[in-house]
Design a protein around this nucleic acid. Structure first.
Lengths: 204, 204
DNA sequence: CGTTAATGCAAGTACTTACACGCATGCCTC
DNA sequence: GAGGCATGCGTGTAAGTACTTGCATTAACG
């Protein structure tokens, strides 16, 4: 029927996908061997090919399986609050996604469109979508005079803050060890909106 | 004597190093083959091994050759101006270095210290050094009351802004096309110090 | 019970890749 | 002109890797 004692084909497929994701995150799609993926998944190498046909197809399937587009239309519709709240809400979504996908995202960075890499571009697409949303929200606040500047530029900057936050933990020693996500996000929003200059004082 | 009609060994070595850098930037140290490096350098593959012994040694030599530490002690000593000027000066250095090394830096991102990768860590070391400098300068401005907050965190954030700027051009469509470095830097410093909220107004 | 579908297993093919070796060649210096 | 040195060139090897194939096994389903 629906459940069998041994793993169903779909379960096997999922196991392979998760294993592939993990190995690719570590070694990259070039360094990930079908043998290691199969080992991690606990299946035979042949099974892997029976399911996906080729390594390339598997890699692509990984990207599609784990880098699905974000369904934010509903989220963005609700963002009619004050700037701070809007940015916090957006930031939370960004942080969550980037955190859970940073290993894959990293690899989409190393390919500068050299050969148009389907894996890299699929992995990056959600980020582009997010960026679009942020632009949209910021545009509104620029329009009503709350913010000033070019919306695209501001959006990129804000996303960059969150992005840096996610990556910095691995690349800078003891940076933001203490930071719980919301506290950190609050900090970024605060800097973004108000800067870090001490109030009531001016240098030089 | 010193000059010969054919390329001297040192010239050959340099050609190989530059070729290796280029190929590694494109394909990564795993994807870069000794054959392609030799082809790009215009030398025979055997020559490559005669000079460096192994591919691993060549890769490491590339990192050491192109990711030298920054000599900033003198630069930082002069940074006693107003915050804006200090940040601009630092930003210029950062931008310049990151721009010229972004292809290599990207690859140092992809290895999360999984196996301690000498190439990645060597390539990243200058960034750590720069970060340290920025912390130092910001600390001074925090101490004299110009800035507020945790210096390390602020430094990471500021570096992230510049870093994002460098990478964003490749990853976000038509972002900052117009930006000349100094104009962009000025924008970041401005946001960092003053935020982007319209002056004299408050949202909600 | 017999069929079918999904898998494990083992061996094999074709190709790539790091690296070694030997030899010929050309340039430089004595 | 002889000897040394860096290099080009070809060939070879051993390991790795994507992918195939034939066969045995197991479990579900009629």
């Amino acid at each position: 029927m629906l459940a069998s004692k041994t793993a169903s084909p779909e379960e096997t497929r999922e196991r392979v996908l998760f294993a592939a994701r993990e190995v690719i995150a570590r070694k990259g799609k070039r360094g990930a061997t079908t043998r290691e993926i199969a080992d991690v998944a606990g299946v035979n190498e042949a099974t892997l090919f029976r399911h996906f046909g080729s390594k390339g197809a598997l890699v692509l399937a990984v990207a599609e399986r784990f880098c699905g587009l974000v369904e934010l239309r509903d989220v963005v519709a609700q963002l009619r609050g004050p700037v701070d709240a809007d940015l916090m809400a957006l930031g939370r979504v960004m942080l969550e996604r980037m955190e859970s996908q940073k290993d894959i995202i990293r690899w989409s960075f190393v390919d500068p469109g050299y050969d148009k890499d389907l894996f890299a571009s699929t992995a990056w697409r959600p980020q582009l979508a997010l960026h679009g949303i942020v632009v949209e929200v910021i545009e509104r606040h620029v329009a009503d005079g709350t913010l000033r500047g070019d919306a695209r530029r501001l959006a990129t900057l804000f996303m960059g803050m969150v992005f840096t936050h996610v990556l910095a933990r691995d690349k800078f020693p003891d940076s933001d060890v203490h930071a719980e996500p919301d506290e950190a996000l609050g900090f970024y929003v605060d800097v973004f909106l108000n800067g870090v200059r001490s109030r009531g004082r001016t240098s030089s």
